[in-house]
């Protein structure tokens, strides 16, 4: 059902996009990492529309009604739920010790943190791990991947989208959706995540090219996560050679 809806929307975007934008040539800004820029920009515009009329108003309402502390609690809860994905990928990346630490975190937060609402582990000095299948594929050698903007769910690379469809299977939320049709969990996750990002809106709105800003932030932050916070420095000399 959902897959079919998504397919219809995709077709609609392609059709609408090609009619609406025919004749308007976009100068490619990063042909190497973003060869599908023309398509991506259309989906980006569609997502911005969905955001403007649906996601953002709901997230703003939630942000107004809900005080900061419980908001943080809900985010902690969802983050704690991604433990099975984190654990599996730490193992796949050959980091068994970190996988044990992640397990410790999960147990502490699930019990002392009352089901994950309180991140007591971080306060106690147990670091938070952020791993997924896309990062694992990168560690395994798939370092370069094309940028791809998806309807509704936003920026990805081909690698990370593929990774998501793998690891999604192990995520407790997708299990709940599969077994109990608990779609409301996805809705809550998305709205609360969007609320967390409200403070970035002003930068995106004010950017001279919001599409490029979102792409830059996504790709750079992804690289940062793949290298566990220690990516190689940009090649500044190459930037100057261009000069």
């Amino acid at each position: 059902m959902t897959a079919r809806c998504l397919a219809i929307v995709m077709v609609a975007i392609m059709a609408f996009g090609s009619i609406g934008c025919s004749g308007a040539q976009v100068q490619p800004t990063d042909p190497q990492r973003d060869p599908w820029e023309a398509y991506n920009r259309k989906v980006h515009a569609f997502n911005m529309g969905v955001d403007r009329y649906l996601m953002k108003p709901v997230a703003k309402g939630y942000d107004t009604v809900m005080p900061d502390a419980p908001q943080r609690g809900v985010r902690n809860f969802f983050r704690n739920l991604s433990y099975p994905v984190t654990f599996l990928n730490l193992l796949l990346q050959g980091k068994p010790e970190a996988a044990m630490d992640a397990t410790g975190r999960f147990l502490v937060n699930t019990t002392l943190g009352l089901g994950g609402f309180f991140d007591v582990a971080s306060k106690g000095g147990l670091p938070r791990f952020d791993e997924d299948m896309g990062q694992t594929l990168a560690v395994w050698g798939w370092t370069e991947s094309r940028y791809l903007v998806m309807p509704f769910i936003g920026p990805y690379t081909v690698r990370d989208l593929l990774g998501r469809s793998f690891y999604g299977y192990f995520h407790p939320i997708s299990y709940m959706v599969r077994e109990y049709d608990a779609y409301y969990l996805i809705a809550i996750d998305l709205v609360t995540l969007r609320a967390e990002l409200l403070s970035f809106d002003i930068q995106i709105q004010n950017a001279s090219d919001p599409y490029v800003l979102v792409r830059d932030v996504y790709l750079q932050n992804r690289e940062f996560k793949i290298y566990d916070g220690e990516p190689p420095a940009p090649d500044y000399d190459a930037l100057l050679e261009d000069f």
């Binding site: 001279s208 830059d216 932050n221 690289e223 940009p234 930037l239």
Partner: peptide, 22 residues
């Protein structure tokens, strides 16, 4: 200092992609 990077996002790279086309 000539660049600052916050959570992996470089000031120089990000500004470059916004400003040089302008």
């Amino acid at each position: 200092a000539f660049d600052v990077t916050i959570e992996g996002i470089s000031y120089v790279l990000t500004y470059r992609n916004q400003i040089s086309p302008l």
